[in-house]
């Protein structure tokens, strides 16, 4: 089994590591860097819980090899909080709208929503559902994630269509 040197930036920190060529990006993040916020729900590319941003685009870290992203900039859920560790905009919107229960899918949703917001498009609910369809949540029925996306991508940030009295 051959080893390979990867050189990449994760959450603003540059890492140069020698890793087995067959190591997935998810395992690299979790086991080599200790960034266990990226979760593995299927290791098959279906559930979306392992989603990270690679050069700003969402990607399934279970399907990528660490070696493939050498030279890239990666952001994980940990890198989407504020610098003092408090939750970022997307993270707090998801929480505020009741979008979190067991929390296992949450990192994937945070990353997917971050990408959606960064695209800057105004989306209707149907388009939001479509955009989030790559992320499985087994607990919430998606209500909170969609309400958060409506708020974050809507014309005026506010609590549209939400009955959680979330206070925004």
């Amino acid at each position: 089994m051959s080893d390979i040197v990867v050189d990449l930036e994760v959450n603003g920190v540059r890492y140069e590591r020698t890793v087995p060529a067959r190591l997935s990006l998810a395992d690299f993040l979790r086991d080599s860097l200790g960034l266990t916020g990226t979760h593995l729900g299927c290791e098959h590319g279906v559930c979306g819980s392992c989603t990270v941003l690679v050069d700003g685009r969402s990607a399934r870290s279970c399907l990528l090899l660490a070696a493939q992203v050498s030279g890239a900039t990666v952001r994980t859920v940990e890198g989407l909080a504020e610098s003092d560790g408090s939750p970022g905009t997307v993270q707090s919107a998801l929480a505020r709208h009741g979008g979190i229960q067991c929390g296992f899918c949450t990192p994937g949703f945070v990353v997917a929503l971050t990408e959606l917001v960064a695209e800057g498009k105004e989306l209707d609910e149907e388009e939001i559902r479509e955009a989030l369809s790559g992320n499985i949540c087994r607990c919430t029925g998606y209500h909170g994630a969609i309400a958060a996306a409506v708020e974050l991508t809507g014309p005026d940030p506010g609590c549209a269509g939400c009955d959680q009295e979330c206070g925004s």
């Binding site: 859920v77 993270q91 998801l94 929390g103």
Partner: peptide
């Protein structure tokens, strides 16, 4: 409608599941 105390760690990737 108290906001969940658990959410802070889950939203920021600080949850600790068994594999972690």
């Amino acid at each position: 409608h108290v906001q969940r105390g658990e959410d802070l760690r889950f939203a920021t990737g600080q949850g600790r599941f068994v594999a972690d």
